[in-house]
């Protein structure tokens, strides 16, 4: 009897866990639909118009894929650059005292400083081409990767290093056997946070520097009062970010399922 009751409890609990968010979704969508269905507004679409728009953009006209791909070129290049520089700088700062001392005030400044006011300067330096967008993505992402890498290496137990040394390990051995494995969880978390920042950078570059891909699409839809398509494009970009970051999380749990310390924003 007790087993059956426990099973029923578990089933009930699962029903809540799925039912509640779905209920919130249904109520939200319903309210949105009701609020907009009679307004005949060119500015705010109904929920169903937005969903139909998303379906059209993705599968019917496929209008979204080209611009999305174009925007994502900057994301990929900028992110790869940020990972390379960020991890390198983070490792260097963690082990070389002098580099740490020189870079530290700048790291604090960059963590506090919003990146967007620098965009006009990027434009002056590199123009409106892909280089500028790559640089913006890089500027958004690299500092978080640096800081997390540094924190990861720093938090490795110094006792372990000392022990390895006393057994005759060289600096290279210490890195390979102790520092890198110990720092991997924090580095991976830094890569995930950096990716989130990079997507932000991609969007900001499209909206504040030059509208080439999705930025251009958004401008077009707004000018033509295709509000359903406008909302659908926004939704699609948000979904891309959520999917990418969820995948990173899965990867992180696979590669380093143990606990980590993380610096986010």
């Amino acid at each position: 009897m007790a087993v059956a009751a426990a099973r029923r409890r578990r089933q009930e609990e699962r029903l809540w866990a799925w039912g509640l968010p779905l209920g919130v979704f249904a109520v939200g969508a319903g309210l949105w639909e009701l609020a907009t269905i009679n307004s005949e507004s060119l500015i705010i679409p109904t929920f169903s118009q937005t969903m139909v728009g998303l379906y059209q953009l993705l599968f019917q006209t496929g209008q979204l894929w080209g611009p999305l791909l174009l925007s994502n070129q900057a994301l990929v290049l900028g992110y790869v650059l940020a990972v390379t520089v960020g991890v390198g700088l983070g490792l260097g700062m963690a082990r070389a005292r002098w580099l740490e001392s020189i870079a530290d005030p700048y790291v604090h400044m960059m963590l506090a400083m919003p990146t967007a006011p620098l965009i006009p300067l990027v434009m002056m330096a590199l123009g409106l081409g892909i280089e500028s967008r790559v640089l913006i993505v890089f500027l958004f992402a690299f500092i978080y990767i640096t800081v997390n890498t540094r924190a990861g290496v720093r938090n490795v137990d110094p006792g372990l290093i000392e022990m390895a040394r006393s057994f005759g390990a060289s600096e290279a051995d210490v890195w390979r056997r102790i520092l890198i494995p110990g720092a991997v969880p924090a580095i991976l978390a830094g890569l995930r946070i950096g990716l989130g920042r990079a997507v932000n950078g991609m969007v900001v570059a499209e909206l504040l520097l030059v509208a080439t891909g999705i930025g251009n699409l958004l401008l077009e839809f707004r000018a033509a009062f295709h509000s359903g398509l406008l909302f659908a494009t926004v939704l699609a970009v948000a979904l891309e970010a959520i999917v990418l970051l969820a995948l990173m999380r899965v990867l992180e749990d696979r590669l380093a399922p143990w606990a980590s310390s993380v610096v986010g924003d």
Binding site: I43, G196, N200, V204, L207, S227, V234, V237, A238, A241
Partner: peptide, 16 residues
């Protein structure tokens, strides 16, 4: 979901 979305992407909607 909202935390993970790039916040700036909603700016065109608010502008509209």
């Amino acid at each position: 979901a909202m935390l993970l979305s790039p916040s700036m992407v909603f700016a065109p909607i608010f502008f509209a």
